[in-house]
């Protein structure tokens, strides 16, 4: 059984077709990335998963259950950290997390304990009784992620989780996500940071103008779409040829500046496939 199966999903707004026939299968336990510029359809796709958007056509199943037929059951498997905060801004962090746990059926003592644990884990323990709107942007983002983990979701959906988070906290979050994934949580991540997708995701889908234009493990996509070679003294070689090995045997005479390795990147794959960079700029 798959964690998520999306079949032929289309979403039309008045004049815009935000999703143009998305087919996607995410196996249980996968760390999956969705890459795309603003307006590509990532958030609409995520909203279709969690019940905030009703697809015009197609179906979405979560662990084999159709989201339109069994919405309550499907929602019980999901945890969402949205791109934009969706909280009662005047509530304290403690209350935000506790109420969230309650919505998913956690009994009071458990949700109180878990809320404190998560706030501590995300470095917000001393802010537990501060109102959400008083926190900095980075803290607000971490609070959103902590909230999404309140219910130990089987599928965790993170929409741009590290936007506005500093580098150290970003790396801490990566560690936390890796641990969760190792423990069996299926993770769906949308991000603007291509290095993040490359670092964390087993597979990524590149989505542009409502369509998935390519999908696969990052290294496989790079190998498929990028020119990879080793350049020694201006000579490009795609494999470790005898000629290259010969050149390298004289390594003492070659300065590091004379050797270059071109391995390609997901960014290059993205630009090649969509014709523009992930921030929407032209290639």
């Amino acid at each position: 059984m798959d964690a998520v199966r999306i079949t032929g999903v289309r979403k039309r707004y008045k004049r815009v077709e935000a999703l143009q026939g998305i087919d996607l299968v995410i196996p249980i336990g996968e760390f999956f990335g969705l890459l795309g510029p603003n307006g590509a359809g990532k958030t609409t796709l995520i909203k279709s998963l969690v019940g905030l958007c009703r697809p015009t056509e197609g179906s979405v199943t979560i662990f084999g259950h159709e989201t339109q037929q069994e919405p309550v059951l499907c929602k019980s498997f999901l945890g969402l950290s949205p791109q934009e905060p969706n909280v009662d801004r005047y509530f304290t962090l403690r209350k935000i997390l506790e109420f969230h746990g309650g919505y998913y059926g956690l009994e009071r003592p458990l949700r109180k304990k878990r809320a404190l644990e998560l706030l501590e884990q995300f470095g917000l323990g001393d802010k537990a009784d501060d109102e959400y709107w008083k926190l900095s942007g980075g803290m607000q983002k971490r609070a959103m992620i902590a909230r999404s983990l309140m219910t130990n979701p089987k599928i965790l959906i993170l929409d741009e989780p590290t936007a506005g988070v500093d580098v150290e906290q970003r790396h801490q979050l990566w560690g936390c996500l890796r641990n969760l994934n190792r423990d069996g949580t299926t993770i769906i991540l949308t991000t603007h940071y291509i290095d993040e997708a490359e670092e964390l995701c087993e597979r990524v889908a590149i989505i542009d103008q409502g369509k998935i234009v390519e999908m696969g493990p990052p290294q496989e996509l790079i190998a498929r779409h990028c020119e990879q070679y080793i350049e020694v003294r201006g000579k490009k070689m795609k494999k470790l040829t005898p000629e290259l090995l010969g050149a390298l045997s004289q390594a003492s005479e070659i300065s590091p500046q004379e050797i270059a390795v071109q391995r390609g990147s997901l960014e290059q794959v993205f630009i090649k496939l969509t014709g523009h960079s992930i921030d929407g700029g032209g290639s």
Partner: peptide
């Protein structure tokens, strides 16, 4: 209406509550 404006209503819609 406040919940719609600050979008906290989304947390109730995505929660497993009929």
């Amino acid at each position: 209406f406040m919940a719609r404006m600050d979008r906290s209503i989304e947390t109730m819609i995505v929660a497993p509550i009929p």
